[in-house]
Computed example of a mutant assay.
Amino acid sequence: MCVFVFDGAQRLALCPAGRGVSLYIPQPSINATVREDILLSVEYSCVGVPTIEWKYTTNWGEQKIVEWKPGTQANVSQSHRDRVCTFDNGSIQLFSVGLSDSGYYSIKVTEHLGSSQFGTIILHVSEILYEDLHFVAVFLAFLATVAAVLISLMWVCNKCAYKFQRKRRHKLKESKSEEIELQDVEC
């Protein structure tokens, strides 16, 4: 009989030596982006050489991905041929995932005496929306252009204000000198 231990989001089945299968899933939930290679990582322990089977489940049903015994040739489904790599520890790697790869990936490890262990990894694949990035880049360029125009406008206004003040000072000096001349004439 196996004892289940829950460590946060990780599940571990501990079985007494020589009996049953134990399965450990270090990352039960994976977020990925389109065209990324991802590793569905697991570790198992059991007596003898087990049979490892991975299935993919979505709202549209369940599909077998791969089945193999460590050290032998893997039987990969036609839908995942050239997209899956198997490892002797029970892990698989999916190459160039797409949006349709989002779903539940179930592993079943069965030893030759018939005991088995199940585990599930949830994969969420999202798309990088380059249109959004393009919009942000165009918006930032627009803001930079507006800032440059405003700075130029402020510079022109400052120059005009400076010239206006110079003319005003010059006229003020002229008017003061005329007043002084007028005062001199009146005396």
Rank of each mutant, 00 (worst) to 15 (best):
S22M: 09
F118A: 02
L12H: 05
G103W: 00
L143F: 06
S45R: 06
S152L: 15
R11A: 04
K167Q: 13
G119F: 00
C46A: 04
S79C: 07
S29Q: 11
F4W: 13
R169M: 14
A13H: 13
G103T: 01
H80Q: 08
Y24Q: 03
W54N: 00
Y44I: 01
Y44A: 02
S79E: 12
S41V: 02
I151V: 12
S79I: 11
S77D: 07
N75D: 12
R81F: 10
L150T: 02
K173M: 11
Q63V: 02
N75G: 12
R19V: 13
Y56F: 14
Y105T: 02
Y44F: 06
L40W: 00
G18E: 04
Q117V: 05
L12R: 04
T58L: 02
L140D: 06
V34N: 12
S79H: 09
F6L: 15
L39E: 03
S41C: 09
P16Q: 11
H80L: 11
G71F: 04
L99V: 09
L40M: 04
V5A: 09
I30P: 01
V156A: 07
I180V: 15
C2Y: 03
K167A: 15
P28F: 02
G18L: 10
T58H: 02
C46W: 01
E43A: 12
K167V: 13
Q117A: 05
Y105S: 00
A148F: 02
R83F: 05
G71H: 05
K55W: 03
S152Y: 10
S91H: 01
I65F: 00
K108W: 05
V97Y: 03
E111F: 03
L99S: 08
H170T: 14
I65T: 00
V5G: 04
D184G: 14
W54G: 00
I25L: 06
N89M: 07
A32M: 04
K173V: 11
D88Q: 09
F87I: 04
F135I: 08
F135R: 11
E127K: 07
S106H: 09
H124M: 08
E36M: 09
C46R: 01
Q117F: 02
V47H: 07
W68C: 03
A148E: 05
R83P: 00
P70R: 01
P70V: 02
K176P: 07
F118I: 09
T57P: 01
Y44E: 01
V149W: 04
A137M: 08
S45V: 08
L99C: 00
F142L: 09
